[in-house]
Design a protein around this nucleic acid. Structure first.
Lengths: 212, 212
DNA sequence: TAGATTGTTAATCGATTAACAATC
DNA sequence: TAGATTGTTAATCGATTAACAATC
């Protein structure tokens, strides 16, 4: 089976909705409900579940609890999800301090930087010198790194990470990185997102002008 | 014509590539080159350009300079692209200080926060009390805001922004916001991005196990 | 049983690519 | 002219939705 990006995004969103339903005391849920919550068809919900071998009851829908357990498993929530942050400038440290992952089992265990004056063992996670990066990744078997270095350092830092065995990189540097087949890179480009918005607004205004 | 998200993302990437080509002294470029650079077919490049009324020469490709001018226009680079940051915690201030937009004409002109002790006129952009938000948006005709408030404040702050006339929101709060038809919201959910990576790795490992 | 919802197949839709005539 | 590249139409591909038999 091929797992698409959109599929995974939906799985993540099902999980969020189901967690809320569970906290409300819901025991079962129908594909119809989940479809409404995500703004997609019930067919797609059922198809997604079928793809991952999740089955429901012909008339009773899906058990919320069992569904969550399955989703946790698929999303890898049974393993420890330890990540590191490479580049501890403003954005890097913000991400280290950002503790919104914790409730979902994701933990930033260390930061790394070239500036020796910010090395510290204080704070939510220790910050080490970049020279310790490779050994740390190997020793702690870190799979995922957030890359928050300046553009000029992005490409070679990514190479270092990949060489050390990192399997996934979330890249905040403003450059489109492409990884080898054994490392998945997701690029978050804030400048592009803002341009995207300006462009959409631009067209919306045009369309309105036409409609009038 | 309908402008899709993917289309805009490609326009943005064409622009990046073309800027680099220009700095290298390139005068013309073929759809084939751009396709290679973006990892798409030459057909799609030509189709994109056709959609926006950009024409080339039957044998001479496209003029780099003219193409850039057109793209700037489409991406709204002729208007001043002033944005604000609402919520000046760690991530908010990091974005205010982040000056990577500047070279692309995007400028953060103010920050807003509820905490009165961080109000300041120092730094790259002044930080005002949230009570001044609506008036500022109206007076300065701000179109786009970055939302970086805590999850609990996200929904009602977004409502305030929309009410004040904001046309686009880049949301960093970990909650999927949905806007009305006159305001476009793009959600950046870092937790989901990391889960996404873990999930992909998970499946890659499985697939490898099967192939062996 | 009657009614409702799943699981799955067929239909639809949209985006991308291939192909090729037009033409510089 | 011959060769190369655009602009555009047709073909393909993949993702989503509609439909419906199976069945609880």
């Amino acid at each position: 089976m091929t797992v698409t990006h959109d599929m995974i995004r939906r799985l993540s969103r099902y999980k969020t909705v189901l967690k809320r339903l569970k906290s409300l005391g819901f025991v079962k849920v129908f594909s119809d409900n989940l479809g409404d919550a995500l703004g997609i068809s019930a067919s797609l919900v059922r198809k997604d579940f079928a793809s991952f071998g999740i089955t429901g009851n012909k008339r009773g829908g899906y058990q919320v609890e069992a569904l969550l357990v399955k989703l946790y498993e698929i999303l890898g929530k049974n393993c420890s999800q330890q990540i590191i942050v490479v580049g501890c400038g403003k954005i890097g440290t913000a991400l280290i301090d950002y503790n919104n992952f914790k409730q979902d089992g994701i933990k930033v265990v260390a930061g790394f930087d070239v500036a020796s004056d910010i090395i510290t063992t204080e704070g939510p996670a220790p910050i080490y010198d970049i020279s310790e990066l490779e050994e740390f990744i190997r020793r702690e078997q870190i799979q995922i790194a957030i890359l928050a270095v300046p553009e000029s350092a992005a490409a070679h830092t990514a190479d270092t990470l990949i060489h050390a065995g990192i399997k996934g990189i979330l890249n905040f540097a403003p450059i489109q990185l492409k990884g080898p087949s054994n490392c998945i890179i997701r690029n978050i480009n804030i400048r592009m997102e803002i341009e995207h918005l300006f462009c959409l607004i631009h067209f919306q205004e045009k369309d309105e002008a036409i409609n009038e």
